[in-house]
């Protein structure tokens, strides 16, 4: 576990990759190059969905677990368009409002997919889709006991994040704003506090609306960003997927580069010496 309680300029220099391809991140022992995770909901078609995933460069996609339609078993399936052998499927518990429902869903997901890396979210109410942290913590504890490796959606609260990590969450995924809202990161201070306190990867999950929001999450030092609606509901989802890929990469590079200090007044870029 690495501590990120303070980031010195030397540390940033040490972390700086020679090229983007060497800048990877690791969750529960699995290493990924792309820091963008995308959802697979709300697309007009499975073809468009697959094209957007391709354009995003994402190596992980979130998926939902739902009843099969036994009246039409021949309808096209997600797995026919996005190959689980090439892209890591991250089963999510979206739509679960209790720890028990989420645990049950993930037990089924593990049986369907055969892996332990999952995304847990336990929602508190339909209006805001804010996470219910009491149920989320309870579910995390049970899932970890059962051998799951849960990446956990949570409020942007550094204390709750720490509690989840102590319970065995393999990644902390605070919201930037409510799911599907596209409002962007509402509280940069708490996201940064979570990043500084965490010993596991931190990914902003939910609330991203456009490319600058994703870049901002990365500039705050997050290990990655998860989004669905920002891409799926763009007028051109495939183009937005490309934009998000570039934003996550540039935000990451800017974080590693270490931004200049802000000043209250101007500071000329041209030398004053030799001025005629």
């Amino acid at each position: 576990m690495r501590s990120r309680s303070s980031i010195s300029s030397e540390e940033v220099e040490l972390n700086a990759p020679q090229s983007m391809s060497s800048d990877s991140w690791t969750v529960a022992g699995r290493t990924f190059t792309s820091r963008l995770i995308v959802g697979t909901g709300k697309y007009k078609s499975l073809e468009e969905n697959a094209a957007a995933v391709e354009a995003s460069g994402a190596e992980i996609v979130t998926v939902a677990v739902r009843r099969v339609n036994i009246s039409d078993p021949s309808q096209p399936m997600l797995t026919d368009f996005i190959d689980p052998k090439k892209v890591t499927y991250l089963p999510n518990t979206a739509g679960c409002f209790t720890a028990d429902d989420a645990i049950r869903t993930l037990r089924l997901a593990r049986e369907a997919g055969g892996w332990n890396l999952v995304k847990l979210e336990v929602l508190g109410e339909a209006k805001t889709l804010y996470p219910d942290m009491r149920e989320t913590l309870k579910a995390t504890e049970v899932l970890v006991k059962e051998g799951f490796e849960p990446m956990v959606y949570c409020v942007d609260d550094p204390i709750a994040a720490k509690q989840l990590e102590e319970a065995g969450a393999v990644a902390i995924m605070p919201l930037g704003a409510p799911i599907g809202s596209g409002l962007g990161i509402q509280n940069r201070v708490t996201i940064r506090l979570i990043v500084e306190g965490a010993g596991v990867p931190v990914l902003v999950d939910a609330g991203v609306g456009t490319a600058s929001d994703a870049a901002q999450a990365m500039e705050l030092g997050c290990d990655g960003v998860l989004m669905n609606t920002a891409i799926a509901e763009a007028k051109d989802p495939v183009l937005m997927a490309r934009a998000m890929k570039a934003a996550v990469e540039s935000g990451r590079l800017a974080y590693l580069a270490g931004r200049m200090q802000k000043r209250r007044y101007a500071d000329p870029s041209s030398p004053l010496a030799g001025l005629i």
Binding site: G39, T40, G41, K42, V63, A64, M77, P84, A94, I179
Partner: peptide, 8 residues
């Protein structure tokens, strides 16, 4: 009986 479908 469940399977994976598109989701966020």
């Amino acid at each position: 009986i469940v399977h994976f479908v598109g989701g966020g």
